[in-house]
Each structure stands twice: as structure tokens, then as C-alpha cells.
Design a protein around this nucleic acid. Structure first.
Length: 420
DNA sequence: GATCCACAGGAAGAAGGGGTCG
DNA sequence: CGACCCCTTCTTCCTGTGGATC
């Protein structure tokens, strides 16, 4: 029995092992990968280098504020330039430290300071615990650690908008002025943000010192995305497995979504994964379309999972109407089914006024379509349609304690609920 | 043209959570 | 710690409305 199971398993593995390989190195397509060349970012690279080059002459560089939408190459470019700077600085014997912090994770004043101090822990022997110390003591330690020798410290604060939104701009105020309190070390800051309005939240004093220099990253167009993908595809895939049309299609689809290079890379990677699973010899346009659909479905699934409870019940009411062939339905229909579902779950239903707003929210999220129409004599209402398959919704609810009972609910023609 | 349906969606305020300050 | 404010969610009450039908 066991013997047989083992052979089966082995042969199953072998079946996959010996099929055509698609990926040579999939990591090249990941967001975190820093390529050797950055196409179409030459201008930004040169600007950054120009701002940072004083370091090599022993002068403090300006603080830099970098902004642009997601997937425009901000992070990867800053990493590329700072890594190069580190390399060159060793050659010129200038001590430079680059500290990269992602403020989505390091999102409080304390954590930022602690992370910087701990960056030097091997050299200084000082380590700050992740919680517990008073903030000003960490700040004092930071000054001490930085000032242990002559050096330049470049602090990269990625997604700096998240930090400011959560913890205010005090930390930035301290950091931009820390140089006046240091004798040996010099600190510069590179702030990266994809929220342009974020500058409005800043104290004018912080803003002026933080954005001594600004570097803007415009979105890529389809041609530029194609170049980026081409370059990565060469390293990521085996020769000849990519159909000619694949890269241009990925680029075009991603360009439609405000020129997001991450999206383009995801598309290419998922296309390859789908082709691999299908054991296809080549990645074709067909796989790209499937990948596009899969990515959209995945994000949609994520959105539904995080919906508040009553929006989920409301969505289920629409799902039931859809299964019964009663879409498009209007607000009143949906509300009455929703109320019945609340009854069944033993929950107080929300008012129709509130549900009307929730319907608009689902519409904004693209899960449903709600259009205001006038039916003359028969009133003004919304026409509500479903944008996903009922099956997907049920699949998600299957894993949720409170909503699982709904899966066994169906609806009879007279719109009476039936629990089977 | 008047009527009138079935809501849309604005206003105000209650209730509750979260954060801040002295 | 309470007092305070702000924000979100939700209710109550309300006025407004496009166009088929009378």
C-alpha cells in the first residue's frame, strides 16, 4: 500500500520534473530584485548621483524627496544608486552607510530610531530593544552611535507617507536637524513616497529641509514597459519559450493601469507559471490573458475577504438573486432578500438608507454594478448587477465561521428563502 | 401637463472606538 | 486616570426627482 503510494508520488514528481522547463530564474521577476540595468530611468539616476556625489568629496549631500506612483521604479532606482555609491565610496576610502527602512513596517518614531541604532550594533555594541525604552533615550543613543566616527549616513525612508500618517512628522523634524547636534557624522535623508498629497501633511519647516532636492518618477508608457520586460525576460526564461506577442501584451495591459512596472512583471511571471502548470512548451498570449484574469480575481478575492460583515451579507443577497436569474434587481428587491438573510443569521438588519450607501461602496469596489435609473411611473431606483461569479463568493464564505450557514441557503421563485 | 412611484441621497445627530493631552 | 476631540458607522427624517402613465 505504502509502497504503491510512494511509487505513484515519485512518478508524479518525475512527470513534472521532466516536462519542458519555462523559468531559468524566476527571482528576476520579483519586485525585490535589483537588475543590473534600469531602462528609462537614466535621468533620475543621474539626478540622484549628481545630488549624492558631494559625499565623495567629503561634503554633506542634500536631503532628497523622491515621488512617483507605484511601480515607477522609485525604490529599485534608489537602491541601485545607493549600492553603487557604497561600492565607489570604498574605493575612495570615504565611510558611507546606507540604511534602508520600509516605513510600512517600521512605522513609528521609536522603531525608526531603534532600527538606525541597531544597524550599527556590531560596531558599537549597543542594541536597543524593540520596545521598552523611552524615545528620547533611544534618540540620545542614536546620536552617540552615529558620532562614534567620521562618516556619512544616508537614511532611506521608503513609503515615508505611511510613517507620517501614522506617527506624524516629529521624527522627520528631529532627523533633518540632527546634523547640528553631531560633531563627526553627517546624516542625509532620502524620502520615498507614492502619495503626492502627502506633502500637505508636513510642517513647512520639515518640508523645506526634506525636499531640498526632489526627484520625480513619471509612469512608464507601454514601450518603456516592453523594454523593461524584455531585459528581465532574457534572464528569467529559457530561450525560445516566450512567444513573441507575450511581452508586448503584458506591457500594454500594465500600461493601461497607470504604467505600473510591478503589474507588468507580475503578469509575465504569472503567465509563465500558468504555462508551466499546463505543461505547455511555450508561453503564449493565451496564458497572458489567463494571468490577467487570475491577478484580477486574486485582488477581487482579497477585497471581498476584507469587507465588513453587512456588506458581505448584502453581497450574498445579490448572489442569490443572480442564481435565481433575477438580476438586474433594484434596491428594494436586494434589501428584502438581505433582511431575510439577516433574519436567518439572527442579526439586526441595517436600514435601507445605510444599505443604499453600502451598495454604492460595492459598486466603487467593482464587485457589483449599480446604476441609477428611472422607471417612470414605477419609480427611481438602482439597477444592480453582479460583476463576479457566485461560485467565487461562496468559496470565500465557506471559510468564514459567521457566513458559512449562508451557503446552504437558496431561493425559491417567489423569492422566499429556502434552507436546505 | 399633472401625477405619482420607489427610491436617491442630503442633513443632523446618536453611539462607539481611538487617540491625545494635562 | 478622566476629559476631550475626532472619525466612522448607522439611524431618523427629510426633500427631491425622471419619466411612464393617467
Amino acid at each position: 500500500m505504502l509502497q504503491e503510494g510512494q511509487t505513484n508520488l515519485r512518478s508524479l514528481f518525475e512527470k513534472y520534473l521532466h516536462t519542458q522547463r519555462i523559468f531559468k530564474n524566476k527571482d528576476v521577476l520579483r519586485h525585490s530584485y535589483t537588475p543590473r540595468e534600469l531602462p528609462h530611468r537614466r535621468e533620475q539616476i543621474e539626478t540622484l548621483v549628481h545630488i549624492l556625489v558631494p559625499v565623495l568629496r567629503g561634503e554633506t549631500p542634500s536631503n532628497i524627496f523622491v515621488y512617483g506612483k507605484t511601480g515607477t521604479g522609485k525604490t529599485v532606482t534608489v537602491r541601485y544608486v545607493t549600492e553603487d555609491l557604497m561600492r565607489i565610496s570604498q574605493k575612495y576610502d570615504v565611510p558611507v552607510d546606507v540604511i534602508y527602512l520600509n516605513c510600512e513596517i517600521v512605522d513609528t518614531q521609536y522603531r525608526v530610531l531603534a532600527n538606525i541604532v541597531n544597524h550599527f550594533k556590531e560596531e558599537s555594541g549597543i542594541e536597543v530593544p524593540l520596545v521598552g525604552w523611552p524615545t528620547d533615550e533611544v534618540y540620545a543613543k542614536l546620536k552617540k552611535v552615529l558620532d562614534m566616527k567620521e562618516r556619512f549616513v544616508i537614511i532611506v525612508l521608503d513609503e515615508i507617507d505611511k510613517l507620517v500618517k501614522k506617527s506624524g512628522d516629529d521624527i522627520l523634524y528631529s532627523l533633518t536637524r540632527i546634523n547640528t547636534e553631531l560633531k563627526k557624522a553627517k546624516v542625509s535623508i532620502i524620502g520615498i513616497s507614492n502619495d503626492l498629497r502627502f506633502k500637505e501633511y508636513l510642517d513647512p519647516r520639515v518640508l523645506s529641509s526634506l525636499s531640498e532636492e526632489e526627484v520625480v518618477f513619471p509612469p512608464y508608457d507601454a514601450n518603456q514597459l516592453r523594454d523593461i520586460l524584455m531585459q528581465r525576460a532574457q534572464e528569467a526564461f529559457y530561450e525560445g519559450v516566450l512567444d513573441e506577442a507575450v511581452v508586448p501584451l503584458c506591457a500594454a495591459l500594465a500600461a493601461r493601469e497607470h504604467g505600473d512596472a510591478r503589474r507588468a512583471l507580475d503578469l509575465l511571471r504569472v503567465s509563465g507559471e500558468i504555462a508551466e502548470r499546463e505543461m505547455a512548451p511555450k508561453v503564449t498570449e493565451k496564458h497572458v490573458w489567463k494571468a490577467q484574469e487570475k491577478i484580477e480575481q486574486d485582488t477581487m478575492e482579497e477585497v471581498i475577504k476584507t469587507l465588513p460583515l453587512h456588506s458581505k451579507i448584502l453581497l450574498y443577497a445579490i448572489v442569490l438573486l443572480d442564481e435565481n436569474g433575477e438580476l438586474p434587481a433594484n434596491t428594494g428587491d436586494v434589501y428584502s432578500v438581505y433582511k431575510d438573510l439577516c433574519d436567518y443569521l439572527d442579526l439586526e438588519p441595517l436600514t435601507q438608507r445605510r444599505i443604499s450607501d453600502l451598495i454604492n461602496e460595492l459598486d466603487m469596489l467593482g464587485i457589483i454594478n449599480a446604476k441609477v435609473v428611472s422607471k417612470g411611473r414605477y419609480g427611481r431606483t438602482k439597477e444592480i448587477r453582479l460583476n463576479i461569479t457566485p461560485y467565487k463568493v461562496k468559496n470565500i464564505y465557506r471559510f468564514e465561521e459567521t457566513l458559512r450557514p449562508l451557503i446552504s441557503v437558496s431561493m425559491l421563485k417567489q423569492r422566499r428563502l429556502f434552507y436546505g
